[in-house]
Simulated assay, not measured.
Amino acid sequence: MTSRLRLRPDGTRAPARVPLSPDDVVDAALAMVDRDGFDSLSMRGLAKEMGVYPTALYWHAGNKAQLLALVCQRVLEEIELPPLDGTAWQDWIVAMGVDARRVLGTHPHLAAYFVSQLQVSTSSLLLAERTLAVLSAAGFHGNTLLFAYNNVLGSIFGWISGEFAADPQDADSTWREHFEAELTATDTTLVPTIRSNLPLVANQAFMLRWSSGPAAPMNGSFDFMLRSLTLGLAAQLKAVSGPPHRSS
């Protein structure tokens, strides 16, 4: 059994009494990603932080890609899915979306990675199963079920990824001030609609923000998106179902 290692006063390592577990590795990796971003995660760096040899991490969690998959699974497990019975399908989608945003909002460094990598795990399968079950019970079938499902997950998780996007790479400490100044100084004749709505959209609209979700959450816009999503799906469902048949 692998154990954590502790440092002796002379700098050499001695095995600790507490054995290392896969959960320990995932917890430590998630904490590192939350603190420094997923690009900072390395097996060697994580091993040093945990006080273990890198081989111990590979034994318990596989390589870096496998570890990140376990980290994503851990985050997915934090999402509280509403019950399938007794919840209207529109309310289920809204509740799932709100909690997914809450969870990924607590792990903003992971949000973009989460949606940019294929997710295949017990947790992702459960989310997929529940979402498909809700939509199927609502009356979506065949290709329409597939399209509705992709609209739900794509809209919700794509939004979350965009809202909690990281700062530009290699951005200096003043890039936000520069961006804000450039936005407010842009020629009115070039972007008249932006300039006339600047107090409304500045730092609250995609492509017009200089702060990410943790600093400038887009709560109202996200709620509006969820309502628009469910209303649009309901309209599509009505269109494919056709008018009710009248008895002669």
Rank of each mutant, 00 (worst) to 15 (best):
I93C: 09
A95S: 14
G97P: 01
D99N: 15
D99K: 03
R102Y: 01
V103D: 03
L104N: 09
L104I: 01
P108Y: 00
P108V: 01
H109S: 12
H109I: 10
A112P: 03
A112C: 12
A112I: 13
Y113G: 06
V115G: 12
S116V: 04
S116N: 15
S116T: 15
Q117R: 13
L126E: 15
L127E: 06
E129A: 06
R130S: 10
T131M: 01
A133N: 14
L135Y: 05
F140K: 00
F140N: 10
H141Q: 11
G142T: 10
N143T: 03
N143Y: 13
T144A: 12
L146T: 10
L146E: 08
A148W: 00
A148F: 07
Y149D: 14
G154Y: 11
G154L: 10
G154N: 03
S155C: 09
F157M: 14
F157P: 05
F157V: 09
G158Y: 02
W159N: 04
I160Q: 02
I160R: 02
G162Y: 07
F164S: 04
A166F: 00
Q169I: 15
D170Q: 08
A171D: 10
D172I: 09
W175V: 11
R176D: 12
E177R: 11
H178F: 05
F179T: 13
T184H: 03
A185T: 03
T189I: 02
L190M: 09
V191G: 00
V191K: 12
P192H: 05
R195V: 04
N197C: 07
N197A: 06
L198E: 07
L198A: 03
P199I: 00
P199Q: 04
P199W: 13
P199E: 06
L200N: 01
